[in-house]
Amino acid sequence: MSSTFFDLKLQVQPEHIDSLGHVNNVVYVQWMQDVASAHIETLGLGMAQFLEMKHAMVAVEHHVQYRKAAFAGEELTLRTWLSEINALYLFRQYVFYRPQDQSVLFVAQTKWACVEIDSGRPKRMSPSFSQAYQPIPADLNPMDFNQYPPQPA
Rank of each mutant, 00 (worst) to 15 (best):
S2E: 09
S2T: 13
F6S: 07
F6H: 14
D7I: 13
K9Y: 13
Q11N: 13
V12M: 13
P14K: 03
E15C: 05
H16R: 07
S19A: 14
G21A: 04
G21L: 06
V23P: 03
V23G: 03
N25Q: 13
V29S: 02
Q30G: 07
Q30A: 12
M32W: 02
Q33L: 11
Q33K: 02
A36H: 01
A38V: 10
H39P: 05
E41T: 14
G44W: 06
G46W: 03
G46L: 07
M47T: 13
M47N: 07
L51E: 14
L51Y: 13
E52V: 14
M53P: 00
M53G: 04
M53T: 06
M53R: 14
K54W: 13
H55V: 01
H55D: 11
A56G: 04
A56F: 00
M57N: 03
V58D: 00
V58Y: 01
H63M: 09
H63K: 15
Q65T: 15
Y66L: 04
R67F: 03
A69I: 00
A69N: 02
A70E: 09
F71R: 07
F71D: 04
F71Y: 14
A72S: 02
A72T: 01
E74Q: 15
E75C: 03
L76H: 07
L76E: 08
T77W: 02
T77A: 11
R79Y: 03
W81E: 01
S83A: 12
S83N: 05
I85V: 12
I85W: 06
A87M: 05
A87V: 01
Y89G: 00
Y89M: 14
F91C: 01
Q93H: 15
Y94P: 10
F96G: 02
Y97P: 09
R98D: 08
Q100V: 08
Q100I: 06
V104K: 12
L105N: 05
L105G: 03
F106I: 09
V107E: 15
V107M: 08
A108T: 10
A108L: 09
K111P: 00
V115S: 02
E116S: 12
D118Q: 13
D118Y: 05
D118K: 14
S119L: 02
S119Q: 03
G120R: 07
G120W: 06
R121S: 11
R121N: 12
P122T: 14
P122Q: 14
K123P: 02
K123E: 15
R124E: 13
M125G: 04
S126T: 15
S126Q: 11
S126Y: 07
P127A: 05
P127R: 06
Y133T: 00
P135I: 00
P135R: 01
I136A: 04
P137D: 12
P137G: 08
A138C: 05
N141T: 06
D144S: 13
F145H: 12
Q147Y: 03
Y148G: 09
Y148I: 05
Q151W: 05
Q151F: 04
A153F: 14
